[in-house]
């Protein structure tokens, strides 16, 4: 496992640009949505004493008041966000071709290859997403059914205990969804390796690999996932503490930075995880070696 992790880190380092591309893409798109919202609501809250409570903690009272005072703005922005999410989703499906090809290739792709793969695999990645949507629904149902077997007694309590138990219940569902995420990665790697094959063969081959390497694939995911979760939680806790403690613009700035650290790490964890999964599936020589007319053709 240690060797695999080391190879994963190497693969990630080789494709570090993907980490930046995804993080900054995410940041720019999110900022493009959030900045207009801020400009509109800033006038309402900036001089208001009632709104000042928001500097102490994330006061839902203030947010509710704002929601009522600028009801139309919030509704409009939610609608925009929904449309925006569709565009963002499609954009990511476009990039997936390049990303998975890069992570699978044993050398660095140039920009032309990257976007060539992106365009070429766009439809295939959409198919994978459609399939995965069904898989996630199924996994969620299985997770909820499994969750119902968990005894209730340890989770009973009021206040923080009840909240922790809610988190824990969600956490119990998470491994099912992670299993789905890994299947999605394997499918996309197979697609990147064999773009010309019929989708049912892609699916069959990916499932074969997924089944035979299930423990390894899941295990390697958790090696990155768990420490990153700890770091996110720490950063988010620190962010809230800093702002509450300082209650001024400096605190807000520090919180913004810490939130962005979380967002950056979230992207990093996924890239690192996928880079390592690429190393796992690369071992399956028949299934995940890029074939003729694919990435290697530009060598």
């Amino acid at each position: 496992m240690a060797r695999l992790v080391s190879r994963g880190i190497d693969n990630c380092r080789k494709n570090f640009a993907i980490w930046y591309l995804l993080y900054f893409g995410k940041l720019i798109l999110a900022a493009a949505f959030s900045i207009p919202l801020l400009t509109i609501i800033n006038m309402t809250v900036e001089n208001s004493r009632y709104a000042g409570a928001l500097l102490g903690d994330w006061s839902l009272d203030v947010i509710n008041e704002l929601g009522r005072a600028r009801e139309n703005v919030f509704t409009s922005f939610l609608i925009v966000l929904m449309f925006y999410s569709v565009i963002v989703f499609l954009f990511k499906q476009f990039l997936n071709g390049g990303i998975y090809s890069s992570l699978l290739a044993r050398r660095k792709l140039d920009r032309r290859d990257f976007f060539g793969q992106s365009a070429g695999l766009f439809v295939g990645n959409l198919k994978v997403s459609a399939l995965m949507a069904l898989v996630y629904v199924l996994l969620l149902a299985v997770a909820l059914a499994a969750g119902s077997f968990v005894p209730e007694k340890p989770f009973q309590g009021f206040g923080a205990v009840a909240l922790y138990s809610t988190f824990l219940r969600v956490a119990l569902l998470y491994p099912f969804l992670i299993a789905g995420t890994i299947l999605s990665d394997v499918l996309r790697f197979r697609l990147a390796a064999h773009p010309a094959e019929a989708f049912r063969y892609t699916l069959r081959a990916a499932l074969d690999t997924y089944r035979s390497r299930f423990v390894q694939l899941n295990g390697v995911y958790y090696v990155y996932f768990l420490p990153f979760v700890a770091v996110w939680l720490l950063a988010e806790w620190l962010a809230v503490q800093v702002t509450s403690g300082m209650g001024n613009m400096l605190g807000v700035l520090l919180e913004l930075i810490l939130f962005q650290v979380c967002a950056f790490l979230r992207t990093g964890q996924s890239v690192l995880g996928s880079a390592t999964i690429a190393c796992v599936v690369q071992a399956d020589q028949d299934g995940f070696t890029p074939g003729q007319g694919e990435v290697t053709s530009s060598d």
């Binding site: 995410k26 940041l27 798109l29 999110a30 900022a31 949505f33 959030s34 900045i35 919202l37 801020l38 609501i41 800033n42 809250v45 900036e46 208001s48 709104a51 000042g52 928001l54 500097l55 994330w58 203030v62 947010i63 704002l66 966000l81 999410s85 963002v88 702002t243 001024n248 613009m249 605190g251 807000v252 700035l253 919180e255 913004l256 939130f259 962005q260 979380c262 967002a263 979230r266 992207t267 996924s270």
Partner: peptide
């Protein structure tokens, strides 16, 4: 800093949604 804090929070939420 109320406005900027809201921006920071909304930005992070939207980023998380995109993630």
């Amino acid at each position: 800093g109320v406005g900027p804090r809201l921006f920071s929070g909304v930005l992070f939420l939207v980023e998380s949604l995109f993630s």
